[in-house]
């Protein structure tokens, strides 16, 4: 799917590969079925003096016209199911060991991100907390701990092919491994009220050196929250709080 959107996580290629597999299989059936409908519609137009054939489809011989294609459809379905289960297993059912952990808190209508502080642990006072501005290191497995303060939200990073609802009262762990440095969109994918469309954030994927520099800068000016300047050149869209006035 790179034609429409970049894929910058370790499993983006798996999901995109599945996309093309499904496209090829259903594309075949789609074209065959459409072709037959249109061919029949044109070929068997009413002609004077020609009577339609009396075919009821009651015998097995006639029904085989339907059931043989259906058996082939079943085989394609099986192929898609197996491929799906394999990708799903890698993406959602397994959890590789974390290199970094990030806390994600959804609320109406902003994302709060907690990064591990200098001590390398999440949940300690030296955590670096930002709003709508997430920083991660390239080629590291990132665990995101997803929570919500109020309603359902959905933490979605399209370029990572990552999406997971956040639910009040629960803590859900997801993972991704970014592979290309850059600044990308984070969207809220579950309608969450008046400011749902404004719940935009940015994720900055950077090298270890850039990340350390960013961390130092934030730690030095601890008041530089929220939305500390990103190390990589960010596009024009402002990442900071855009919560509309009620």
């Amino acid at each position: 799917m790179n034609h429409w959107i970049k894929g910058v996580s370790s499993y983006a290629a798996d999901i995109d590969g599945l996309f093309w597999l499904v496209t090829a299989l259903i594309g075949f059936w789609f074209i065959v079925a459409q072709g037959i409908v249109i061919y029949f519609a044109l070929k068997y137009r009413r002609k004077e003096g020609v009577k339609a054939a009396y075919i009821t489809g009651k015998t097995w011989r006639e029904l085989s016209w339907v059931f043989i294609p259906v058996v082939l459809v079943v085989m394609c379905d099986g192929w898609i199911d197996v491929a799906t289960a394999s990708v799903w297993h890698n993406v959602k059912e397994t959890l590789p060991t974390a290199d970094h952990k990030v806390g994600v808190m959804g609320q109406q209508w902003a994302w709060t991100f907690s990064h591990e502080g200098p001590d390398g642990k999440l949940g300690t006072p030296d955590d670096i907390v930002t709003v709508d501005d997430l920083h991660v290191v390239v080629n590291k497995v990132i665990h995101v701990d997803l929570q919500s303060k109020d309603v359902l939200h959905s933490f979605s990073i399209p370029v990572m092919r990552f999406k997971q609802d956040t639910i009040p009262g629960r803590s859900i762990t997801g993972w991704f491994k970014p592979t290309v440095p850059g600044v990308y969109d984070v969207q809220c994918a579950e309608i969450c009220g008046l400011g749902h469309g404004y719940m935009a954030a940015r994720i900055t994927v950077q090298t270890q050196a850039d990340y350390d520099a960013w961390m130092k800068a934030v730690a030095a000016g601890a008041t530089a929250l929220p939305g500390a300047p990103a190390a990589s050149p960010a596009p024009a869209a402002a990442p900071a709080t855009q919560v509309p006035q009620k």
């Binding site: 029949f40 054939a53 379905d77 898609i80 199911d81």
Partner: peptide, 28 residues
């Protein structure tokens, strides 16, 4: 995911049967 993809089978039967109804018809 499995059950969802399986439901395409009976729907495909119905669609194919409708298409087969056109075969050798006198379509207006």
């Amino acid at each position: 995911s499995l059950t969802t993809i399986i439901i395409s089978i009976p729907v495909a039967v119905i669609m194919f049967a409708m298409i087969a109804t056109l075969f050798k018809g006198s379509i207006e």
